[in-house]
Design a protein around this nucleic acid. Structure first.
Lengths: 133, 133
DNA sequence: AGCTTGCATCGACAGATGTCGAATCAAGTG
DNA sequence: CACTTGATTCGACATCTGTCGATGCAAGCT
């Protein structure tokens, strides 16, 4: 039978910090939550859209600049942008005739954190920066 | 038409280093490649499976320990494990009657890297601590 | 050899997803 | 106001996905 005790964390009990999927089993809610975002990233078109938008960090991209980069209809691009927005990865704002999309780094930061395994317990990277320059 | 030149990288030209989706537009191949992995993570069951397996880093988990954690049929769990394996996120080994799965940290490391934005490249003069409010 | 247990594969099916064209809404221009 | 351009929403449709039960295969046991 083997009844391996699946390590019952205690490390990420904080709350919304969601510290890593790799150190402790996710509960159903967290899994469902994260899955929505990963699903949004699970399409090549959306990944490219996000990278186009995010690589303009601080800036914005007009839909009119995104659409022509694909061999897809404009409604389809709009649909993908909507999904990215619902996933909390981007946000949009209408200005005049055009609509601009911009990245919401918080979400990608969260995902990165969730996928980052804590430093091997043998090298504390606590370099006290901010001394020079 | 505006033909904004969407920054043609040069930073991640290395090769397999795939440094960040957030600093430069992904090309179609990279996007398709990454999308497969994100898609594998885009399901709550698979996320939980991965977290169960990965939180045993260095170790392994017997399928017989994973299956009972879900209200799903055994074939369904097997199916999800297969997808995770095909995505390069886990690997399996048969030992005697049992099959053990273990994490492949390289892939999650890669994803984390792709989602991690490099230190602010332009660091705008952020309030030189001390200025009045 | 037969039987039992653990996992994977197969075939089927309901529901979700990506895509399109057409229609609609939003703003600016004549 | 009529007209044009940019973007979203709608309805339809083919495909993909998650799930199941049944079946098949691999190892160990009696």
């Amino acid at each position: 039978m083997s009844k391996q005790e699946l390590v019952v964390v205690g490390q990420d009990s904080a709350e919304g910090c969601c510290p890593t999927l790799l150190t402790a089993p996710l509960d159903e809610d967290q899994a469902a939550d994260l899955a929505k975002v990963f699903k949004a990233l699970g399409d090549p078109v959306r990944l490219r859209l996000l990278s186009m938008i995010a690589s303009r960090a601080g800036g914005e991209v007009c839909v009119c600049d995104l659409t022509p980069a694909f061999d897809l209809s404009q409604p389809t691009i709009s649909h993908h942008l909507k999904l990215l927005k619902q996933a909390g990865l981007i946000d949009s704002e209408r200005r005049g005739t055009w609509v601009y999309y911009r990245p919401l780094p918080q979400m990608t930061d969260r995902l990165a954190a969730v996928l980052t395994r804590p430093a091997e317990p043998s090298m504390p990277p606590t370099t006290p920066a901010g001394a020079a320059s």
